[in-house]
């Protein structure tokens, strides 16, 4: 359960998705915690949906949120969020942390499609997303970062995304931006003034034998095969709307399964 201490709030929310043996997916564990509230929503076919609600309120400086999801063999889970998450400065000193730990077993599938993370002025947030997939697991994961609310300077945001398939890292990347980040983050090599940046990673066992073809969507996005059974879309845009449009377009361009 969540604890408010002088250093901020610690919250851990947990999801376990399990094949129910009737072609659907059950949720033997669905633990909300303080500001991290989880709601089961309507299931479609074999897929069960969970919505993260109320994360709006944080994380603030000093907070440490963790969301863990495990998708067991043959299960199919989709996780979204009701609204964008806003990183805000807090009364407690220090940075905020948001850890996401995802595990997907053989024959299981996870769609991790939260709304945007907005880095508000004065905030300082470290996000670490780690995904462990078994050899035949499937994944669609989207991360979108918006640097500042409209007309506002961004806070400091450091975000690391690492994805392993069968114990082998296929992606390990960190983006640091905002005031106090190492120099050049807003310059011509990194973001060049764009205020929205995102990634979409798709892992499918079929990509090992038939990788996607590398290409670009205009000047703001690329679709590439990773060194492993995965495809990555990297996109930058002036704003959240433009970014979502690019990521949706790129996802639609991937071969259907």
């Amino acid at each position: 359960m969540s604890v408010r201490s002088g250093a901020g709030v610690r919250s851990v929310a947990r999801i376990v998705a399990r094949a129910d043996g009737r072609g659907g997916t059950s949720l033997p564990v669905l633990e909300s915690d303080g500001p991290l509230a989880l709601r089961r929503t309507r299931a479609t076919g074999s897929e069960t949906r969970v919505m993260l609600v109320g994360a709006m309120s944080g994380p603030l400086g000093g907070d440490h949120f963790t969301v863990e999801a495990r998708v067991e063999e043959g299960a199919c889970l989709s996780v979204g969020s009701a609204a964008a998450t806003i990183a805000l400065p807090g009364q407690a000193k220090g940075d905020a942390r948001y850890d996401v730990r995802l595990e997907v077993a053989d024959g299981a599938e996870l769609h991790w499609l939260p709304e945007q993370l907005i880095s508000a002025q004065g905030s300082d947030l470290h996000v670490a997303t780690r995904v462990e997939l078994a050899a035949t697991a499937r994944l669609v994961l989207r991360e979108e970062q918006i640097l500042g609310r409209v007309g506002e300077e961004p806070g400091r945001l450091t975000s690391r995304l690492s994805v392993r398939v069968a114990g082998q890292a296929v992606l390990d990347q960190e983006l640091a931006c905002g005031p106090g980040a190492p120099g050049g983050w807003d310059g011509p090599a990194v973001l060049a003034g764009r205020r929205a940046v995102g990634q979409l990673i798709v892992v499918r066992p079929e990509f090992a034998a038939a990788p996607v073809t590398a290409g670009v969507l205009g000047e703001g996005a690329s679709v590439v095969p990773l060194a492993g059974p995965a495809a990555l879309v990297t996109a930058v845009a002036p704003d959240a709307l433009g970014l979502r449009r690019l990521l949706d377009e790129a996802l639609a361009s991937l071969p259907r399964t």
């Binding site: 690391r160 960190e174 640091a176 990194v190 000047e219 590439v224």
Partner: peptide, 16 residues
């Protein structure tokens, strides 16, 4: 693991 989105995207554009 520092990354630069525009270097990544630009490299794919350039390769084409």
């Amino acid at each position: 693991a520092g990354s630069a989105p525009l270097l990544e995207i630009g490299a794919e554009a350039h390769a084409g």
